[in-house]
């Protein structure tokens, strides 16, 4: 089955253990999470998680359904096929000398990245963009020697009025499901 990168967004209760519950569902099916970004959403009490996984669509669908069953998961959606904006932020610590500094600065400039720390032997470059852009910058800076790298993982948002959002109505106790079932029964 064809594998591809999937971008999955989940809105989850901001409670201890939620990440563990969700990660456990991916683990159980043997998925490797390529990146994961977590932070607050527009709704108080709800965190927004963005997962990137590399897997077959049918398998991803199955896990998404399993994750959706978790009580703490309010909404989950695979937005891979949406028209979306996706970004990642990276900080790259590059070895630099008086001789190489200006060349590095030129590259940084071309990528519209910025320098956030300078010492006689190092520079920290901060860059934001899609993964491909980050990858190309990393490749170029690699020649100077990368001492340290951290990437946030992808965050993504559908363009326009489309939203990743749960139903507005909270789920309430349904009267016909409230009581226990009558014991026994007849065919």
């Amino acid at each position: 089955m064809r594998r591809e990168h999937h971008t999955i967004v989940a809105l989850v209760e901001d409670r201890p253990g939620v990440l563990n519950r969700i990660a456990s569902k991916w683990r159980q099916r043997g998925f490797n999470i390529e990146s994961l970004a977590v932070g607050h959403s527009e709704t108080p009490g709800l965190s927004r998680m963005t997962f990137v996984v590399d897997a077959a669509t049918h398998d991803v669908e199955q896990v998404v359904k399993q994750v959706d069953k978790l009580v703490d998961v309010v909404h989950i959606e695979d937005i891979t096929d949406h028209d979306m904006v996706s970004r990642e932020l990276a900080m790259i610590k590059v070895r630099s000398t008086a001789a190489t500094r200006s060349e590095i600065l030129q590259i940084v400039d071309i990528f519209r990245a910025s320098i956030v720390d300078v010492t006689p032997d190092t520079l920290i470059v901060e860059v934001t963009g899609e993964e491909a852009k980050l990858d190309s910058l990393l490749q170029l800076l690699g020649e100077f020697g990368i001492l340290e790298l951290c990437r946030t993982g992808r965050i993504a948002m559908p363009r326009g009025s489309t939203r990743v959002s749960p139903d507005e109505e909270p789920h309430l106790l349904l009267p016909h499901l409230a009581g226990g079932r009558a014991p026994g029964g007849i065919y």
């Binding site: 989850v12 209760e13 069953k69 009580v71 909270p170 789920h171 309430l172």
Partner: peptide, 13 residues
């Protein structure tokens, strides 16, 4: 509580 309020618990309605 008379009711539960679980916004992440979905039942087919």
């Amino acid at each position: 509580p008379e009711r539960v309020s679980l916004r992440g618990y979905k039942l087919p309605e």
